[in-house]
Design a protein around this nucleic acid. Structure first.
Lengths: 147, 147
DNA sequence: ATAAAACCTCAACTTAACTTGAGGTAAAGC
DNA sequence: GCTTTACCTCAAGTTAAGTTGAGGTTTTAT
């Protein structure tokens, strides 16, 4: 068994994750493997890129669920090519940009609002950065009150 | 019982969260209440600000644990004043700034890297934005390989 | 050839942040 | 006064993303 693909241990080590995580990602369908004669997993090198991308996407705040959905648009039995990866990249960049903008808004309003008296759920600009409140948020909200 | 403070239901509604969450936050020591003659919770208006801040902090990616730690620096039996709230604000702004910068780095590297051949755990600039890899990430990593 | 290291499966445990439900009490509306 | 709505407590369930462990097999190294 000299050159039959990567073992789980090798994948884990090269990706900086645990063997159990490799198993876990496979169980979620994010990566796949074949088996050798002794029923041990063997991974194509392509898996390293996939794991890299999983990790990068997670840093962006993308869930494994969403990563799986994005991966499902990739070809099943051929290594994705450059432009296929770039399609993913573009989708996620948009998400990432939105997150950044949203955090920037929050940051910009934080100083102005947290110390002032206006902090309220409904009207304070801090809470109106594109997100919507829960269903039951209809009631009147304290404005300019001193708590 | 006309003006004895806010009931859980009122707090929940005005904050756009569920009654169970109000209970939950109280169980975590993030907010507190007194009880009326019939053992029902009554909240001071100050609680609305606290919940507001909990929500804002969560949007920033701050955990309830950290929020609790920050809150623990506030006075126990007096409503915090403006400058006390602003101290919190300042702490969190730094965290927020770091997160933003980190996401920006990721974003800026995403397009360049995800479609190219260099995406690797160890050397690719995408993974070198200040975070460190796991302990076992020591092995050689595929560079410029076609997966 | 044998021992150690790596794998295998499957079930159960972990943490965060809540939610749901059961069984029972209090307050409000008519 | 009665009924409905709101509360109470406490235990258990939920989702995400893994981790841990038990019991057993395969590879690798000496």
């Amino acid at each position: 068994m000299i050159n039959d693909g990567l073992t789980v241990g090798q994948v884990a080590k090269r990706c900086g994750i645990k063997v159990s995580s490799v198993h876990f990602y496979e169980s979620k369908g994010l990566i796949s493997s074949s088996r050798n004669s002794g029923n041990q997993r063997r991974f194509a090198k392509e898996v390293l890129r996939r794991v890299s991308i999983i990790k990068a996407a997670q840093k962006m705040g993308i869930s494994l669920q969403e990563i799986g959905e994005a991966f499902s648009t990739l070809p099943k039995h051929r290594a994705p090519n450059k432009s296929e990866w770039q399609t993913l990249s573009t989708q996620w960049q948009d998400k990432l940009n939105q997150r950044i903008v949203s955090l920037q808004n929050l940051r910009d309003r934080l100083t102005g609002c947290i110390g002032c008296g206006c902090l309220s759920m409904e009207r304070c600009p801090m809470y109106n950065d594109g997100d919507h409140l829960g269903e039951n948020a209809a009631g009147p909200v304290l404005l300019n009150a001193k708590y």
